[in-house]
Design a protein around this nucleic acid. Sequence first.
DNA 1: GTCTATATCGTGATAGAC
DNA 2: GTCTATCACGATATAGAC
Lengths: 192, 192
Amino acid sequence: MASRGSYAKGVAKREEILTTALEVIARNGYRGASVRELADAVGLSQAGLLHYFSSKEELFQEILRKRDEVDSQALEGERERPIDGFFAVIRHNAEVPGLVRLYAQLSTEAGDPDHPAREFFIERYRQFRLRFSDLIRDEQAAGNVPADVDPEQTANLFLAAADGLQTQWMLDPSIDMAESIAYLWQLVVRRS
Amino acid sequence: MASRGSYAKGVAKREEILTTALEVIARNGYRGASVRELADAVGLSQAGLLHYFSSKEELFQEILRKRDEVDSQALEGERERPIDGFFAVIRHNAEVPGLVRLYAQLSTEAGDPDHPAREFFIERYRQFRLRFSDLIRDEQAAGNVPADVDPEQTANLFLAAADGLQTQWMLDPSIDMAESIAYLWQLVVRRS
DNA sequence: GTCTATATCGTGATAGAC
DNA sequence: GTCTATCACGATATAGAC
């Protein structure tokens, strides 16, 4: 509650670490990043960094959470069409390969039933599905998307396609993720 | 050339190992599988197994290659519609969680420019894109898919969606991957 | 709160006997 | 061709000084 005392200070330091880590990974890339590597990058020893995050998995999970927080601002900015925010995020991803790799890696590992970040990703998909299907419903109400389009199925497909395109893009960066997603949108809005 | 001698025998043993490994992983699942674990499963020592595959990555890559080989038969079987083979493979995936995890893991790690399996996956996507876009062109010629559908873009979206749905399914197995893919197909064939 | 130093572990790979 | 034994490594995590 108070902004004074060791607790609040610890939180602030955490935030500072996450922000720096985000920049470092985005810029310098991700090479199976170890805690040590990242600790160097943010100017702490490995032990020093793990003072703020109890485990490697928690650390990386929180980095991704922070990233979502930043991206959300882009997503919610005023645009001509609501879907444009989503396109913007995808387009931005191509500028931060390290983050794309970190996300792909951790979300895949979280498929293990015992992985500590599993809950984080389950909840993350739940939220994104909700947000996206709401967007589609809004656009249907506005007459921009055909009424026979299923908002939930479609939202799911967009999230899946975005993830899968990242895998392909990491293997071949000449692939245009945003263009593919835009094409999917075109399939959706097409009058039947 | 000859079916006698140490060379041919080694190849046969490799095949046997791969077939067994495929069954074991499909049935028992995949837990960040180490070479040692898999060696136990196929009844060899770790060193014994690595006698046939020079490295861990090569081993797992070949397991996935063998899996594709098996799946291809399903894919090319006679069906009512060509796309049904693809659906069948997706539906089958839900029965082999260990293989899904192995595939997701390795294909993600292969995003690293230095990963030994990188070439394998690049070529794999190339082939699948080709096969799928051919399928769509055939269906367009047969009048089953609208002419204004872009075969390459659409093929890419199907592969991406299939991959991304696996990530979601590993986190929540109640998700119906085949249903989602079928819905995508419905979006595609819809007359505009 | 941050460091140095270290414990502990599991890994892939290899040497060499049989 | 397969084993046992071992190596060398790099990782996370922790203990304890400052």
